Simulated assay, not measured.
Amino acid sequence: MTPSSARPNGCCTPFCEAGGVRELSLYWKVCLTNGAVFVVGALALALSPARVSEQVLASEAVVLTAGLVLMLVVNGALLRLSLAPVDRVIRAMATVDLAHPGARLEQPSSGPGARLVEGWNDLLDRIEAERAAGGARALAAQEAERHRIAQELHDEVGQSLTVVLLGLKRAEDQVPPDLPEIAEGLALVRESARAGLDDVRRVARRLRPGVLEDLGLHSALAALASDFAALDRGHLTRTTSPGLPPLSSDAELVVYRVAQEALTNVARHAAAREVALSLTRVGETVVLEVRDDGRGVAELRPGSGVLGMRERASLVGGELTIESAPGQGTTVRLVVPT
């Protein structure tokens, strides 16, 4: 439903535009439905041989009661036919979950309820489209900011630490032989600076996956596996099926970021002994799976990391599922269409 075809709320005229066709508004349809039922009831009483005495007899009371019940039943059935879609839209409003897009109400064939359902479905289409576009812009800005921070860490902090290392090495070489304790102290400081430089480089590499841009997804996942192995937080097994179909650059970035976040969560929280990272093809999809045998959780509470993974997956039409149970580990599964 485009803005040009949208009707103002509370249309006060008997006819309202709907897709170029003038149709009765819901208010007037309810009025006419009730009026038609009452007119038919009045005609039936007027034309039938039944008459009401000055003192209503029992038989006449039965006829009047039956007629009233019939009118109420017919009126209720007609109103239900017109207003049932309204109740469906109200229930959908209370249960809609934008984190799982795609749910739509079945479109009635005609009537004011059909226009309401059509408007609700169109509204969801616009909300999901705007949400996806906003999410894409936010993630693009996030990646740009990651790139900027990584560049500054590499060019400024990394070079400064390199200068410090060279200066410490020069000072260590100039220490007189009779002052070994000073030389040892300088050596310790130099090793701390070297460790700090390694940390800066590792953080910059995590912020900007240069290996993904230069060598592709397979090499980027291999680098993630190497970084995880260096943390000594469990034995990692990596499996990649041969002949995987090519993915777009956005899809590859989503797969990489989901794998990165999943492995980070394993290293921080899982206390796992065995971790499996796999990238396989299933039909017309590519499936990333990160599985561990760690402590698991009884109830998954989505934090910023999980929500970020879900949003990234939705941007490329993918689906993210997380299964976890206490003592049975956690499985993160991302399905991306090719």
Rank of each mutant, 00 (worst) to 15 (best):
P180H: 05
H235R: 15
T280A: 13
S278Y: 04
A270P: 02
T280L: 12
T264A: 08
V297D: 01
D250K: 00
P177A: 08
G185E: 11
D227P: 02
V258G: 01
A183C: 02
G234L: 04
G216T: 02
V258N: 03
V282L: 12
V200K: 06
L179V: 08
D250P: 00
R201C: 02
E252F: 02
G243F: 06
P302A: 11
L221V: 03
T240H: 05
E213S: 03
D232V: 08
L217T: 04
T280R: 12
V282D: 15
A229D: 12
S304T: 09
L207W: 04
S278N: 05
S241Y: 07
A267W: 06
E172F: 06
E181G: 00
L215T: 02
R291K: 12
L165Q: 15
S249R: 12
G294H: 01
L186M: 11
V164I: 15
P177C: 03
S248M: 02
V286E: 11
A223R: 08
G303L: 06
A230Y: 00
H269C: 01
V254D: 01
D232K: 09
P209K: 00
G294D: 08
L244C: 06
P176H: 07
A298L: 09
E261C: 00
R301W: 05
L288M: 08
A220M: 07
V287F: 11
L263H: 05
D199N: 10
G196Y: 12
D173V: 09
T264G: 00
E252C: 09
D198A: 12
T239P: 04
A204P: 10
H235E: 14
H235M: 12
A222L: 09
A270T: 03
L277I: 01
D173Q: 14
V189C: 13
G296C: 09
L279F: 10
R208S: 06
E181D: 04
P177L: 05
L168K: 07
I182E: 02
L224A: 09
R205Y: 03
A272H: 05
A271E: 14
T162A: 14
A225F: 03
S249L: 03
L212P: 03
I182N: 02
A183Y: 00
D173F: 02
K169Q: 14
A183S: 10
E191D: 14
V175R: 01
P242L: 00
E252D: 11
R295G: 05
L168F: 10
